[in-house]
Simulated scan of single mutants.
Amino acid sequence: MTTIPPDNLPTYRLLTGPDDAAFCKRVSEALALGYQLYGSPAATFNGERVIVAQAIIWPSAKPA
């Protein structure tokens, strides 16, 4: 595995959006690139729909 993310992406990312298939696809694509989930997901309700967040981290950025 490479030590840096592809396409100049940051080592830490917080993905957010409506809890729908598009959000799940974004998380899945990041995992396929080599990112790992970091911490638990979060969810809130904005009065119309559920908004979710998931932190992801590039493996070489994890503390030992």
Rank of each mutant, 00 (worst) to 15 (best):
M1L: 05
M1H: 11
T2P: 06
T2Q: 09
T3D: 10
T3H: 05
I4R: 08
I4N: 06
I4H: 03
P5H: 01
P5Q: 05
D7S: 12
D7C: 01
D7T: 02
D7A: 13
L9D: 09
P10F: 02
P10G: 01
Y12K: 11
Y12V: 04
R13M: 14
R13S: 07
L14I: 12
L15P: 05
L15D: 02
T16C: 14
T16P: 04
G17M: 09
D19T: 06
D19R: 15
D19A: 15
D20M: 08
A21S: 14
A21R: 03
A21D: 11
A21W: 00
A21G: 02
A22N: 12
A22I: 13
A22Q: 15
A22E: 12
F23K: 03
F23Y: 14
C24R: 15
C24I: 03
K25R: 14
K25C: 10
R26N: 12
R26S: 10
R26Y: 01
V27P: 01
V27W: 00
V27R: 05
E29C: 09
E29D: 13
E29T: 14
E29P: 01
A32M: 06
A32T: 08
A32D: 08
L33T: 00
G34V: 02
G34A: 06
G34M: 03
Y35Q: 09
Y35C: 07
Y35P: 01
Q36H: 06
Q36K: 13
L37A: 03
L37G: 06
L37P: 10
Y38M: 02
Y38G: 00
Y38V: 00
G39T: 03
G39E: 00
G39C: 05
S40D: 08
P41V: 08
P41C: 14
A42T: 12
A42I: 07
A42S: 11
A43W: 10
A43L: 06
A43R: 14
T44G: 13
T44E: 07
F45P: 11
F45D: 11
F45H: 15
N46G: 10
N46L: 06
N46D: 15
G47V: 13
G47Y: 13
E48G: 09
V50D: 11
V50P: 02
V50K: 14
I51E: 13
I51C: 14
I51W: 13
I51A: 04
I51V: 15
V52W: 04
V52H: 11
V52P: 07
V52T: 10
V52G: 10
A53Y: 08
Q54L: 06
Q54G: 07
Q54R: 04
Q54P: 06
Q54T: 06
I56G: 03
I56K: 03
I57P: 02
I57V: 14
I57Y: 09
W58E: 00
W58A: 02
P59E: 04
S60R: 00
S60C: 05
S60P: 08
S60M: 08
A61D: 00
A61C: 03
A61E: 10
K62L: 15
K62N: 10
A64P: 07
